[in-house]
Computed example of a mutant assay.
Amino acid sequence: MARLTYLEAGKLALAEEMRRDPLVWAVGEDLGRGGVFGQYKGLAEEFGSDRISDAPISESCIMGAAVGAAMMGTRPVVEMRFSDFALCAVDELVNQAAKARYMFGGQTRVPLVVREPIGIWRSSAAQHSQSLEAWYAHIPGLVVVTPATPADNRALLKAAIRCDDPVVYMEHKGLWPLEGEVPEAEEVAEIGKARTVREGRDVTIVAWSAAVHTAEAAARSLAGQGVEAEVIDLRTLWPWDREAVLASVERTGRLLVVQEAVSVAGFGAEVAATVAEALHGALKAPVRRLGAPRIPISYAPPLEDRVRVTEEAVAAAARGLTAAAA
């Protein structure tokens, strides 16, 4: 095992895939100087400007060129810097990349990875802090990946690059410095497979991305109070591991879905509805969701903190579910 940060693990995955396959390349703004967060540092020196390609400040141009290059047989990795900025290229991604395989009758595919850093990053305000994963999960033709750990950021990015469909790859900015154990041997994750972070008998907590760590911390706190929470990291939102979630909730009888994104129309609603439809008779308490209120994220730290889903809030919601059914 090697100890790497989340950022380093993603950079390692890209470098390994570029060494393995000469058709893999990356394009975006500021890549030549290492990327805005340093997630490409040193790659231009190894692979040259043809494969670590700096682009003008035009997200729609970057995405459109990459979609065409993917349809011609290469495997572009597109850096959007912030998921908020990727909205400038939503037509190229949603109307072109996502639909090309269907509209051309399977004669072409778009093996494209779009890296979109998501989530709250201190005092980045309303235009640099959003978690928009539910938007892309709604679009037929797109794969949506949300890694929570350094090991997954390596294994899932490798899987995304090898996927023959367009992948929206959403890395949480707040996780860049997170350290964790990463296998030295190559691991390529299975897209659509959840991970059980912690086993428990009393309540199932489902989360993804940075919210996984909040849920895990809450579960540790709950254990000291006699409540054993099972924590599931979805890892990918489309496809998502419906079977793993249903199996867990069938055992515990209770579900709490935790997301950083705005609760209204978030992906947590999909998980909650699926469980309610499939396991209504087996539930010991109503399904519960926790997410941000439907307001812009403030620049001011005290107001920013008001939209965060905290360990304390998760623990309180889980306790409420177990008490209601006692």
Rank of each mutant, 00 (worst) to 15 (best):
R3T: 12
R3M: 06
L4Y: 04
A9D: 03
A13D: 11
G32W: 02
V36S: 12
Y40S: 12
K41Y: 03
E46R: 05
I52K: 01
D54W: 08
A55R: 00
E59F: 01
I62F: 01
G64K: 03
M71F: 11
T74D: 11
M80A: 11
R81H: 08
R81G: 08
D84E: 14
D84P: 02
F85V: 11
F85R: 08
A86Y: 05
V90S: 15
D91N: 11
L93T: 12
A98T: 03
A98F: 05
A98S: 08
A100W: 12
R101W: 10
Y102V: 03
G105K: 02
G106K: 02
G106F: 10
T108P: 00
R115C: 01
I120G: 02
R122D: 10
S123N: 07
E133I: 03
A137K: 01
I139V: 13
P140F: 14
V143M: 09
V144I: 07
P147Q: 08
P150N: 15
A151E: 14
L156Y: 01
A160D: 08
I161V: 13
C163H: 12
C163F: 07
P166A: 15
G174L: 13
L175Q: 00
W176K: 04
P177K: 11
E181L: 03
E181Y: 00
E184T: 07
A185R: 03
A185Q: 05
E186D: 13
V188L: 03
I191A: 10
I191H: 04
A194R: 03
G200D: 06
R201E: 14
T214S: 06
E216Q: 13
A218K: 05
S221W: 06
V227R: 03
V227I: 14
R235P: 00
T236C: 06
W238R: 14
D241A: 12
R242A: 06
A244L: 04
V245D: 08
L246D: 07
L246S: 11
L246R: 03
S248E: 09
V249I: 09
G253T: 09
R254T: 11
L255I: 10
V257Q: 06
Q259W: 01
Q259D: 07
V262T: 15
A265P: 00
F267Q: 08
E270Q: 09
V287F: 03
A292W: 05
A300F: 14
P301V: 15
E311S: 13
E311V: 15
V314L: 09
T322R: 05
